[in-house]
């Protein structure tokens, strides 16, 4: 059962946990992000003397579990990240997760691409739209996107070419992708 659940996507696990009240699915989902949760909690454990792994992680997991039952989660990684950040910022306050507009637009575009995988006409339409959106980007952004996604260059390569740090390259790419998603969403709305 565990093996079968671990092959499911985040969306399916969330659905099972919410609709069927499947605790195993919930466990598999939390376990999938637990190592990342540990990694982002390390500074808090190190800096905060009162923080203890024995109490921090159970309470954080409990909060995630509660959020899973009550909140609408579109992207699990973003939900975990936001929940952890709000936990450290306001330990006594449970702020509900709500995805940003950029994240929603990007998710929408990702879903469109996923759906168009088996539909040639839709795929062609989407490619045309992406080309148009790419043309609408600034030269630097277009260059970074084309080099990274189409030419398979790494952060380090692009950073070396442009003289940026890899973090800045990643940040610029994220911004460019967000703009691209926004343009594509606008195009679909105009239609």
């Amino acid at each position: 059962m565990y093996q079968q659940l671990s092959n499911l996507s985040d969306k399916e696990l969330i659905a099972r946990a919410r609709k069927l009240k499947d605790r195993e699915a919930e466990g598999v989902l939390l376990e999938r992000y637990s190592h990342l949760l540990v990694a982002i909690c390390l500074p808090a454990l190190k800096n905060n003397a009162g923080a203890n792994a024995q109490t921090l992680f159970p309470s954080l997991l409990q909060r995630l579990s509660n959020g899973l039952k009550t909140q609408s989660i579109q992207k699990a990684s973003e939900w975990v990240h936001q929940t952890a950040r709000t936990y450290f910022a306001h330990p006594d306050k449970q702020i509900p997760y709500y995805p940003s507009r950029e994240a929603r637009e990007q998710l929408h575009t990702e879903n469109r691409v996923e759906k168009a995988a088996s539909n040639t006409i839709e795929k062609q339409t989407l490619i045309t739209q992406i080309q148009q959106a790419l043309a609408g980007l600034s030269t630097d952004d277009r260059y970074l996107v084309e080099q990274f996604y189409l030419e398979n260059k790494t952060f380090a390569d692009l950073a070396a070419q442009k003289g940026y740090t890899p973090d800045k390259v990643r940040h610029l790419l994220k911004k460019a992708k967000s703009r691209l998603a926004m343009q594509l969403t606008n195009q679909s709305h105009v239609k």
Binding site: R32, Y33, H35, Q106, V113, I127, Y149, L180
Partner: peptide
């Protein structure tokens, strides 16, 4: 490859 820009990739595993 243009479609790859918006291809979903799973989070890093352990």
């Amino acid at each position: 490859r243009l479609l790859k820009i918006f291809a979903g990739v799973r989070c890093l595993n352990k």
